Simulated scan of single mutants.
Amino acid sequence: MTSMPAAERLGSHIKRAERALGATKHAVLKPAGLTVPQYAALLVLSESPGISAAALARACGVTPPTMNTVLKNLESRGLIERSPHQWHKHVLEARLTEEGKGVMADADERAVRVERALAAEFTDEERESLVALLGRCVDLLESVRPSSG
C-alpha cells in the first residue's frame, strides 16, 4: 500500500489539467494542420524571428532533437525557412514564411479560444491566485530537483 493516496497528490491533479489542456489544444489545432509542438514553435518564432533551434527548444520545453524534427517538418511544409546566422555559420536561424504566418494566425486564433475559455472559468482574483500558486509550485520543484552530473 502506498503512503499517499493518488487523490491527495498535487502532481496528479496538475498532470490531469496539463493532459486535458494538451488534448484540447491538439483537437483545436488539428484542423489548422499543426501539432501542439509545431504550434508552440510557430508561436515562439512569431515573437522571436531568427531564434536558434536550441533556444527554441528551451522556449518550447522540448529536447533539441525533438525541436529539430519539428523544424524539419515545418520547413518541408513551407511554413518556416532556415538560413545560416550572419556570424555563426553553423547556427541556423528560423523564420516564418508568409504561408507560415497565415497558418500561425489561424492556429493561434484556435488556441486563444481555448485559453480564453479556460480563463473565463475563473474570476480575475482566482486567475491571479492560480498563476501565483503554480509559480510557487515551479519555484519549489526547481529548488528541490537533484542536479544532474
Results as ranks from 00 to 15, higher is better:
Cys60Ala: 11
Glu128Trp: 01
Glu99Trp: 08
Gln38Leu: 13
His26Asn: 10
Ala23Glu: 15
Ala117Leu: 09
Gly22Ala: 12
Arg77Trp: 10
Val131Gln: 05
Arg9Asn: 07
Lys89Val: 14
Ala94Gln: 07
Ser83Gln: 14
Leu42Ile: 08
Gly22Ser: 12
His88Leu: 14
Ser83Cys: 06
His85Pro: 00
Ala105Tyr: 03
Glu109Phe: 04
Ala41Arg: 05
Ala40Gln: 07
Glu81Ala: 14
Lys101Tyr: 01
Thr35Asn: 14
Ser83Met: 14
Pro84Trp: 14
Arg9His: 06
Tyr39Val: 00
Val103His: 03
Ala117Arg: 09
Arg77Phe: 09
Leu79Lys: 10
Leu71Asn: 02
Cys60Tyr: 12
Arg127Asp: 03
His26Gly: 07
Leu133Ala: 11
Val70Phe: 14
Met67Ile: 14
His88Pro: 00
Lys15Gly: 01
Arg58Thr: 12
Gly33Glu: 05
Arg58Ile: 04
Glu8Ile: 04
Gly22Leu: 14
His88Glu: 11
Gln38Val: 04
Glu18Arg: 09
Ala111Asn: 01
Leu45Glu: 08
His26Phe: 01
Asn68Met: 06
Glu128Val: 06
Gln86Ala: 11
Asp124Tyr: 03
Gln86Pro: 00
Ala94Ser: 15
Thr35Arg: 15
Arg77Pro: 02
Ala107Asn: 09
Pro84Glu: 13
Glu98His: 06
Ala57Met: 09
Arg95Pro: 08
Pro65Glu: 02
Leu74Gln: 13
Ala119Gly: 01
Ser12Phe: 09
Lys101Asn: 10
Ala117Lys: 10
Leu34Val: 13
Gln38Thr: 04
Lys25Val: 06
Leu56Phe: 10
Ile14Trp: 03
Pro65Ile: 13
Thr123Glu: 03
Val103Trp: 03
Lys72Cys: 06
Thr66Asp: 02
Ala40Trp: 06
Leu45Pro: 03
Ala107Ile: 05
Thr69Tyr: 07
Thr35Phe: 10
Gly11Trp: 02
His13Arg: 11
Leu45Gln: 03
Arg116Met: 04
Glu115Met: 03
Lys15Thr: 11
Phe122Lys: 07
Tyr39Ala: 01
Ser52Asn: 07
Val62Phe: 08
Ala55His: 09
Pro64Cys: 06
Lys25Gln: 12
Glu18Met: 08
Gly50His: 12
Gly33Thr: 02
Ala57Asn: 04
Val103Asn: 07
Arg95His: 13
Arg95Asp: 11
Glu125Cys: 05
Ile80Pro: 07
Pro49Gly: 10
